[in-house]
């Protein structure tokens, strides 16, 4: 159970054609992520981390090489099958939250389950409520997304990403729009989810955010140049206490 491979990538290449030039965004990547890992994918812009995330997130297909997600080879799937995989096995958290405007928190969280015909209305409601409770928004279920703070919106987004019980959550610069305290709170939430067994891939270029994760993978020019286990994992809850209280207003 503990060593179950969620993501397994072998010799992965991704090439783009821009005009006459071929850009090698990913150049032979090997990566294995086991269940329960908390992974930070790091690198400067143009390093290929976004391209990898798109492929990992089944939004894009590799040019060459194999990608096994939870035992399924993604390479052979068509557009609709990829959508179904995303719906059932993956969760996404974005830098800019991407919530539906003027829509309540619970409706936003329910959204992925609406695209799954095997989930009944009652189950959908219950799961969405549980997800919102898990991210600490029990009292704000009926609040509209645009009436919430950034941190709250990102919590709703996290609830949305986990409502379908995914095998892995992909977070793309999920703290990029947030202040330090709120960033730490979000990381604390991710750590909490990870402690409960959720596999998380976190793309970031900030090393102090990466310090909250268990494993750091660093990209440069389409290759992995470093893959290390974090030695001293920072506990986000403790970091929050270390912040000067007067500088920040609690949400």
């Amino acid at each position: 159970m503990e060593n179950k491979e969620i993501i397994s990538i072998k010799e992965l290449h991704k090439h783009y054609r821009v005009g006459d030039e071929t850009i090698k965004a990913l150049n032979g990547i090997d990566l294995t992520v086991n269940k329960g890992e908390f992974l930070a994918i790091m690198g400067t812009s143009g390093s290929g981390k976004s391209t990898l995330l798109n492929i990992l997130g089944c939004l894009d297909l590799p040019t060459k090489g194999d990608y096994l997600l939870d035992g399924i080879n993604v390479k052979s799937l068509n557009r609709n099958q990829l959508a179904t995989i995303r719906n059932k096995k993956l969760g996404f958290v974005f830098q800019s939250y991407n919530l539906l405007p003027r829509t309540t928190a619970i409706e936003n969280v329910e959204l992925p389950l609406l695209y799954n015909p095997s989930v009944s209305n009652a189950v959908r409601k219950e799961k969405a409520e549980q997800a919102l409770i898990a991210v600490g928004l029990k009292d704000r279920m009926k609040h509209l997304s645009n009436q919430m703070s950034g941190g709250q919106q990102q919590r709703v987004a996290i609830a949305r990403s986990m409502v379908n019980d995914p095998v892995v959550i992909f977070a793309d610069e999920a703290t990029g729009n947030l202040d330090t305290r709120t960033s730490f709170e979000i990381m604390a939430l991710f750590q909490e989810l990870n402690d409960k067994g959720m596999t998380i891939c976190f793309v970031t270029h900030e090393s102090d955010i990466a310090a909250f994760t268990k494993r750091n993978v660093v990209f440069r020019d389409g290759r992995i140049i470093k893959d290390t286990q974090t030695k001293n994992i920072v506990i986000a809850r403790e970091s929050i206490l270390g912040l000067k209280n007067e500088d920040y207003i609690l949400n």
Partner: peptide, 15 residues
């Protein structure tokens, strides 16, 4: 963006 999000969380083209 909304359309992109719907697709990312599993909305098919026909949806």
């Amino acid at each position: 963006r909304e359309i992109g999000l719907r697709m990312a969380i599993g909305g098919k083209g026909k949806d």
